[in-house]
Nucleic acid binder design. Sequence first.
DNA 1: TCGGCCATGAAACATTTGTTGCATATCTAA
DNA 2: TTAGATATGCAACAAATGTTTCATGGCCGA
Lengths: 290, 290
Amino acid sequence: MAEPAKSSPLNELCSALPSLPMRLQEVGRFVAANDYDATTRSMRDLAAEAGADPAAFTRLAKAIGYSGWDALRAALTEARRPSQTSPFSGRAKGRRHGPHADVALITDKLEAEAAGLPRISASSVANAAKTLHGAKRIWIAGFRSCRSVAELLNYELRLFRADEVQIVGGSGPDDLDLGAFRADEAVVVIGFTPYTGASVRVAEAAYRAGATLIAIADSVAAPMAEGADHVLLFEAASSPGFFPSLTGAIAIAQSLAAVTFSLGGATAKKRLQDTEARLTATSIYVSEKG
Amino acid sequence: MAEPAKSSPLNELCSALPSLPMRLQEVGRFVAANDYDATTRSMRDLAAEAGADPAAFTRLAKAIGYSGWDALRAALTEARRPSQTSPFSGRAKGRRHGPHADVALITDKLEAEAAGLPRISASSVANAAKTLHGAKRIWIAGFRSCRSVAELLNYELRLFRADEVQIVGGSGPDDLDLGAFRADEAVVVIGFTPYTGASVRVAEAAYRAGATLIAIADSVAAPMAEGADHVLLFEAASSPGFFPSLTGAIAIAQSLAAVTFSLGGATAKKRLQDTEARLTATSIYVSEKG
DNA sequence: TCGGCCATGAAACATTTGTTGCATATCTAA
DNA sequence: TTAGATATGCAACAAATGTTTCATGGCCGA
């Protein structure tokens, strides 16, 4: 009757728990403690692991107001569904007003981005770096806003792999480069929703050429992630704002460059020093003020 | 060929996609895009929603090396299982060597960068954005690795301030632009140690012209921060690695663009929509899978 | 002590699930 | 074009699923 409003199915379960027969309490606690398995594995499977009768699960579901175990599981499944980030509708968000609205906007954005960084798969980046290290040549492609990420990666890799790194379309129309991909080369493509046609074409060309394809994207469902040997994911929509965030992509690019450099060992170190020496000699850098 | 081996089932799926028959590609894309439903709902259910034959799912699973759909789903389920590792637990891992040294390097780097983001002064960014909003024209300068940051800021601002934003040296030698600075304009300079001479010259020129100078730098002692009306600080050296991190600078640039956009109000919104419409019309973007 | 009640487990049930065989449609190569 | 191979949809299959029924066992009130 006077249920505690419409909270999550788990809460309903917990609040109804004390008034249930002993066996159902056990089962209920098991479900609450293993709700992920509850949504993915079968009822009999759970029963075996919980050491209970399968029927107990059906009875539990009915006891707390569901038509059956399927209904309860459906509710749990929906409750667990990852929040669908509407990629481009975010700009319609209600603008907070007041004097500090802008500050709050920035703070939210930064917090969300900070939270997203640790979710990047370090092992995936490490594996991709191994591939880069072994590649005879490295192509980098990024268009629109992703061009900045591409250029950063290009710049950092060139510090110790000068002759072997190149931006796709860096010196002329993109299509001239697409035919140049070779099997022993690596192609890095950066992109997120909405995906540019050019990035997809690069990915396809890389695949056709048999080159190793590394995709830095916001989703495994990204078109240019198809056929990729490595997919490095970042959260573009995680931060509020009028445009998807590139912070994660930048972090990946830098990590990629850093690990590739460390794999390069003494040779890479030497080349980096040479490059720096040359830049200093041509007085690109300014001496710091004492 | 030697598989990367240690990748997620989603990655295996993506890399195998292009070599699959058309129908299986469709189904594969559907699975990649709806992997949560793939783990929770039934095969036939998915088939109905994807508009495909149930058998296609079984065939897809077998095509990429699993014994059947159940096996693929089990793999996806395990991959999706919530990790018991708390996101921000500063795990004390002394391991600096061994097989996982690279992974540890990346993890440390990401954690340090994530920790640095909240230290950015949101109010400073907000103030700088107000300046940008009032500026007749916006110049952006960044050299070497900072060029990527400059281009990102340029790209995002141009989405709604097309005619009034320009990269210094974007169309010819830098020095041609230096004389063009005016008093009612704003100049954004991005840089960190070691500082390039070019960025310092830009800052000086802006100061002489009486233009508003916004410096994005790693220190208030940076040469181009001298005489700046706004200094936005980020932590470049906070993360380990062979090269200072630009993650903070990117975050600042994006926040700056976002706030400037929000200050622009309806006009900015309208222009952004126009720009997007134009990009879509020229089919720069590829339509997402159905 | 007895009798009703409910909780519990085992087995039987109707569905639904994933799979496979087969006939047709589609593509590829000569 | 023809021949061979492959891809695809349909339908039937065995296995597994959630549910129900039934018999049993324990509990409390008379």
